[in-house]
Design a protein around this nucleic acid. Structure first.
Lengths: 182, 182
DNA sequence: CTATTAAAATAACAAGTGTTGTTAAAAAGC
DNA sequence: GCTTTTTAACAACACTTGTTATTTTAATAG
């Protein structure tokens, strides 16, 4: 009996996510999403209770997108935190809008930075153990220092105050690791 | 002949600045400012051509406020970039809204980070020279590294991912300086 | 073919935004 | 007291936002 749905949750979420990626999270509005999908605002509120629901879903998708980004990222760094850090800074440069959403905006308080980085695969834990294996006395403290530095570079790239390329960034991270780990 | 003005530019700007400080820059709207001043929206548009004009004035006032904050800040650090860095991180913790406006938001691209820090008194130049006096080979490179680290700590405090107090932060900066400057 | 039933579209509401005529008020000079 | 001139207020316009009531549409069961 019922009419077949023509606008699926997947269509809505994918469209909203794409908009967050290209136009920024603050531009994900009911009307803009529906216009991009090619429907009225109604299907959005059939699938999600309200806009907050859709925005949370977009946030979740973004956090998964970051983990996938890291998973696919070239892992050739010689130091602990090198691959994760390089991917993080690259992500900030390439996906400014998503980076802001996940790690800078007020919305980013949904999950802590540690949660977002660690993911289901224990990305952070793995790197800390790697540092421990290398006879580092305080691997957690080293992670903190390294990550403050890495986060600083990523955030500066957002405002145009950091413009080193990946090779230079890689060298910089090696130098910081050397500096912090002795 | 003319009617005496009852709403001055100073009243408007001070009120708008105070709102940016306490409620966030994004909440500085024509109606909210006028409500806080206790007048209609009209006086705002008599004094400023449009809202953009007022917002730029608020930004300028914020940048001066930061420089004054630093000028008044306790200067007892034993290392170059120590006082400036500590003040910067304290400012981020105490004045989150203004810090975001100046150093994180898209509006922050009005002035570069270097411009904002250096001010009219050459705060950055002075510290770089201090580092040079201490036989540092690459004081500009040292500044870059130190500042990436300092900016990282400040930004992490915004999202609740950094919670060291001033004494701990001070130690951390001394340690970073030692690490980076050899 | 019709009745049922869910989906989608239309349109509206209420609240918010910047902005702008028009009107009222007040002060100074004649 | 009257006119002039500036300031301020009121109200409205045109727009955006989330949300929702109502209507239309389409698919299926009988």
């Amino acid at each position: 009996m019922p009419r077949k749905e023509s606008v699926t949750e997947e269509m809505i979420l994918n469209t909203a996510f794409e908009m967050a990626k290209t136009e920024g999270f603050e531009n994900v509005t009911a009307r803009k999403v529906s216009a991009a999908v090619g429907c009225s605002t109604q299907p959005i509120f059939r699938v999600y209770e309200n806009m907050e629901g859709l925005l949370v879903a977009v946030y979740e998708k973004a956090s998964q997108y970051f983990l996938d980004y890291f998973k696919e990222y070239d892992k050739s760094s010689l130091i602990p935190f090198g691959d994760l850090g390089l991917a993080y800074i690259s992500f900030a440069k390439e996906e400014k809008n998503l980076f802001k959403l996940l790690f800078v905006s007020d919305f980013s308080k949904k999950k802590s930075m540690y949660e977002l980085l660690n993911g289901n695969e224990g990305n952070v834990v793995r790197e800390i153990n790697l540092a421990r294996q290398r006879q580092c006395k305080d691997p957690e403290g080293l992670f903190m220092k390294m990550w403050i530095f890495i986060h600083g570079a990523a955030c500066m790239s957002l405002t145009g105050d950091y413009d080193l390329d990946n090779a230079q960034t890689s060298e910089l991270l090696v130098a910081s690791y050397a500096a912090f780990s002795r």
